[in-house]
Design a protein around this nucleic acid. Sequence first.
DNA 1: GATGAATGAGGATTCATTCAT
DNA 2: TATGAATGAATCCTCATTCAT
Lengths: 226, 226, 226, 226
Amino acid sequence: MEKDHAAGQLEEEQWVQELLALSEQEQVTPKQLSILRAAIDVFAEKGFSAAATSEIAQKAGVAEGTIFRYYKTKKDLLLAIVVPTMSRMIAPFVLRNFSGVLDVPFESYEAFLRAFMINRLDFVRRNLKIVKILIQEIPFQPALKEQLVQNIFEQVLARVTTITEHFKQQGEIIDAPTPAIIRFTISAIIGYLLVRLLLMPDHHWNDEEEIEQTLRFILHGIGGAG
Amino acid sequence: MEKDHAAGQLEEEQWVQELLALSEQEQVTPKQLSILRAAIDVFAEKGFSAAATSEIAQKAGVAEGTIFRYYKTKKDLLLAIVVPTMSRMIAPFVLRNFSGVLDVPFESYEAFLRAFMINRLDFVRRNLKIVKILIQEIPFQPALKEQLVQNIFEQVLARVTTITEHFKQQGEIIDAPTPAIIRFTISAIIGYLLVRLLLMPDHHWNDEEEIEQTLRFILHGIGGAG
Amino acid sequence: MEKDHAAGQLEEEQWVQELLALSEQEQVTPKQLSILRAAIDVFAEKGFSAAATSEIAQKAGVAEGTIFRYYKTKKDLLLAIVVPTMSRMIAPFVLRNFSGVLDVPFESYEAFLRAFMINRLDFVRRNLKIVKILIQEIPFQPALKEQLVQNIFEQVLARVTTITEHFKQQGEIIDAPTPAIIRFTISAIIGYLLVRLLLMPDHHWNDEEEIEQTLRFILHGIGGAG
Amino acid sequence: MEKDHAAGQLEEEQWVQELLALSEQEQVTPKQLSILRAAIDVFAEKGFSAAATSEIAQKAGVAEGTIFRYYKTKKDLLLAIVVPTMSRMIAPFVLRNFSGVLDVPFESYEAFLRAFMINRLDFVRRNLKIVKILIQEIPFQPALKEQLVQNIFEQVLARVTTITEHFKQQGEIIDAPTPAIIRFTISAIIGYLLVRLLLMPDHHWNDEEEIEQTLRFILHGIGGAG
DNA sequence: GATGAATGAGGATTCATTCAT
DNA sequence: TATGAATGAATCCTCATTCAT
């Protein structure tokens, strides 16, 4: 379902629904859904601390007290939004047979990176506000930090290391320290995602071309022939 | 003065003092200084919105009212911390004859990048908490956003573009779109800085080696010989 | 309902209720009512600026925050008390068929003044504290000043001028400048009200006689036969 | 000295000086004087409670602490302004041989009232701001209230009663209760002063004519020939 | 005398959370 | 289940007053 790139307001909202309905196997009432939608908007706009539950309630069209029927505290509401998204963000690295990104034998490292960039660009685009909130709040929410460390450092890194070393052995990647390679590669990718979606979202982008360019940079650098 | 890398708590504090005493030519009383120090700590730890002026006052060892003698509002206190640092952060790009980074004719693009990485790594290390605060608050402080846009997009980018194209003409850099080159280069550098200073500050780093590695990646990529 | 002169604490409180319930058609909860009562007391006793919302809350037996559920700011609370009273104060001049004061054809100017004095004495007596607050705050609340100017100077004066000139034409009033006549008449009436209700409220007053006396003064002066 | 009507900003300021230098026999330093001037301005503009001593200090061009060298508290500053003026306001009734107003045998009650009106109009004009402050603060300052009661009710009223009854015996005033006569007369006079100086200070006034008109009203009323 | 930095109690207002309905 | 009135602790900020210089 992530293959269609057409991302828009509507789609993001559907995504929110999936987010909870599917990935958490929980029943999400329409009221709860509108609370989540409103909370995402307000958290993204004002930041978690500066966001007022009353404003969320108003935007969601529910009573102030209703929020606290579903989420015991404001922080619980934040986590309900942000934790599943964090899971989904790293899902491709965790789920064994995730649709076509990792385990399917890629012809090349380049093909792997390309698929990864397209896939994650799409994901971030669809979950832009939540990703913003996530980035903002990780430093202040120990619960998030812990999840991040556990997931990223103990699952994602392990997996990416395996892949990287696989292609290193195949001679597709130079023989440099794997952590440095990974850091560099991810920096270049995230760098593109941030500029593309956060810094200059209104610029007219030719994503396919930019992705190809970025891949060339990652693989061959920007140094001239000399 | 930025040449000595030994950065520590003490040094950062001296830096804070320089920050205001030198760069703003303003008198900073000891009390004001302790307010700034406390504010930097609390803002970095809790985030601006969640930081209480009462806690800052307590940590600074002054009465709460004293804060407001020096800074009319809490937001003014934030800006007093963050704006000069933002200026310093981009100073190398704005000041004509900044010590050895830009205008001094570098032998090569590589030498330029190396000097830049060392220089800015040092700067961020010394101003770590303030940089954290800056990154956190830019999305929510229009005043900061505006400064950023004006400075970065209208001064820094112009300058970096000139430099990049200079080396492009000299054949040191491949003939790819300059914005993409800049984005990629800066992503790789900032990626290193973030991992080095924020994500894994406690890891034992060999900065010189990592910088060299990163420079090789930027220039030649990670693709194997094939 | 204004015909019974027996004014007391209880009655004034009922009046407060009418004030909002009837004249504004708004629902006034018991809690809101006790806030209004407490605010009237504290504003009258200390003055608006010196009145603390905490004291009002305490006197009203509600939490401080409750005040701000009903009135966004302290000033809004003031206006909620004072504006409707100002309206009622000049109502006889604005409402066409107000009970027996203006439009009903009076036999004489004297009868008109008598009705007016009795009526307004009664009104001020019932709204004594609010009138005090009103007088005190008009110089400092532009919103009130504006209302006053618009109402008094553009409605009341016009109406009183008409009435006065009507009786002038009938020969009941001498041919002097109408503004001076009005100023003089109102001065004498207000002078009595103030002395009666504010300066010497505890003196034993024979209102009927004093009003007759004042009317004679207004009409025939205090000059002796000579 | 009150005979020259030319009242202006300068004159009022001189008046302030007299106020303290002469009537209190105290040394008034230039600094103290500028504090008084500034305090009068700020108290009149904002009201006593809402006036900030810091604003007064700033307007006076002195340090905040300086105010408290001269006046122990903010309230003392208020009283220093308002008490002497209150004394002067009723001085004509208290001082035996005050220049030409009371004890000099007037030809008539009318001449007495005329002199009184001119005299007091002049006084209020010169002390407008202070009179405003006085009126505003009397209800909230027991010290002022007490002074007022003692002075007005025990000195002024006695004196005015004597005079009134003197002219009553001479047949110039009708045989009505003296308190009512006094109340009525003073109401008419104060009514003119308030409208003239506070309500419509910008209207173009022919004071002489208005005073004559008011006197006629007081003596003969506004009733027509019938 | 005069300053003005420093105080800290008190100000109005906000807001997450509770709970009776 | 959903409400929204009510809470009161906590927030930022003001200000009269003090006191070392």
